[in-house]
C-alpha cells in the first residue's frame, strides 16, 4: 500500500514532525489513528477541526495532526478549548488529554466543562500513570499498584472517569480500550457528532513505566490484558460485584440531549439585543 492510500496520511503533518515522541508499543498512537478515522468518517474539513491538548505524553498528539492545533498548559486544555469553541462555535474542537492532565491538575476544568455542556469532544487517554515524568501515580492508578511516588503501593482510590463525567453533566460518555480500536473509532465518531460535551475514555497502558514498576511485561502483554480483562457493559451486568472488581467495562454510559452552551448563549445574545434587559441595573451605553 502506498503512503497516499493510507487512511491517516492526509491528516498527518509531513514536515519536520516524525518520528513521534512516544515509546514503541505505546497506545497513544492508536488513539490518534482512531481520532483520524472518526474525523474522516464524518467527513469534516481539516480547516474546521481544532485539536487542543495539555501536557504529557498524550499532550504531544496535536503536533502530528494536520488540523488547527494547540498544545497548551498542564491540565488546562479544556479551558483553552472552551474559549476557542465559544469564540468560534463553527469549529469542531477535540480535546485530547492524559489521565493526570485531565483529572488531577485539570479536574476542576473537566467537571465544569461537562457541567456547561459546551460542545467539546474530550478524549482521555488513560494509562494509569504519569508517563512523561517517569511513572508517578495518577488519579487513575489502581489501588495497590506501584509507582515511583507510591513505592509501597498506591493507597488512593482511582477516579471512575466515565461516571465522573456523566455525573458532572456530559451528554455523551463512552469507554473503550486501545485494543478495541474499531470500537474506539465508533465511540470517538459518536462523541464528535454529539452536540454537547462528550467524553471518550480510551484505556491504554504504559509499559515503559507502569508496566515495568508493576512487572506486567512488555507492551504486547499489556495489550493482551486489555483484551482479556475488559467486558462490554451488557456482559458486565451479568457479573457479580466481586467479579467486576478491576475489570474494564466498555460501552456507552450516557447519551442524552440537552441544550449546548454556545447555542444557549446565542439566545442570550438575542435577548440582550432585543432589549429584554438584564436582570441587574443598567448604567447606559457608550456615546
Amino acid at each position: 500500500m502506498s503512503q497516499d492510500e493510507h487512511s491517516a496520511y492526509n491528516y498527518l503533518r509531513h514536515t519536520k514532525k516524525f518520528p513521534n515522541v512516544w515509546c514503541s508499543g505505546c497506545g497513544i498512537g492508536i488513539v490518534m489513528s482512531a481520532l483520524i478515522r472518526a474525523v474522516d468518517r464524518i467527513g469534516l474539513a481539516k480547516d474546521d477541526v481544532a485539536v487542543v491538548s495539555g501536557i504529557g505524553c498524550t499532550g504531544r498528539m496535536p503536533v502530528y495532526l494536520d488540523f488547527n492545533t494547540m498544545h497548551t498548559t498542564h491540565g488546562r486544555a479544556l479551558a483553552f478549548a472552551t474559549g476557542l469553541k465559544f469564540a468560534r462555535p463553527g469549529l469542531t474542537v477535540i480535546v485530547i488529554m492524559g489521565d493526570g492532565d485531565a483529572l488531577a491538575i485539570g479536574g476542576n476544568h473537566f467537571i465544569h466543562a461537562a457541567r456547561r455542556n459546551i460542545g467539546l469532544t474530550a478524549i482521555v487517554v488513560d494509562n494509569s500513570i504519569y508517563g512523561m515524568t517517569g511513572g508517578q501515580h495518577s488519579p487513575t492508578t489502581p489501588l495497590g499498584s506501584r509507582a515511583t511516588t507510591a513505592p509501597y503501593g498506591n493507597i488512593e482510590p482511582p477516579f471512575p472517569v466515565c461516571e465522573l463525567a456523566a455525573a458532572a453533566g456530559a451528554t455523551f460518555v463512552a469507554r473503550s480500550t486501545v485494543y478495541h480500536a474499531v470500537e474506539l473509532d465508533r465511540y470517538i465518531e459518536q462523541a464528535i457528532r454529539k452536540n454537547g460535551f462528550s467524553l471518550v475514555e480510551a484505556v491504554s497502558y504504559c509499559h515503559t513505566t507502569f508496566g515495568r514498576l508493576n512487572k506486567l511485561g512488555p507492551a504486547v502483554d499489556m495489550m493482551r490484558r486489555l483484551k482479556e480483562n475488559s467486558v462490554t457493559k451488557s456482559a458486565a451486568e451479568k457479573l457479580s460485584p466481586e467479579q467486576r472488581a478491576g475489570v474494564i467495562v466498555r460501552g456507552v454510559f450516557c447519551d442524552e440531549d440537552r441544550p449546548e452552551y454556545t447555542a444557549l448563549y446565542d439566545e442570550v445574545i438575542q435577548r440582550a439585543q432585543e432589549g429584554a434587559g438584564a436582570a441587574v441595573r443598567t448604567t447606559g451605553g457608550l456615546g
Binding site: V52, M70, T72, T73, R76, A79, F80, A81, T82, G83, L84, K85, F86, A87, R88, L91, N108, H109, H112
Partner: peptide, 13 residues
C-alpha cells in the same frame, strides 16, 4: 487559571 486560558483560546479564535 481557566479564565485567562479561555481568553487565549478565544484570541486564537
Amino acid at each position: 487559571i481557566a479564565s485567562l486560558a479561555a481568553c487565549i483560546g478565544a484570541s486564537v479564535g
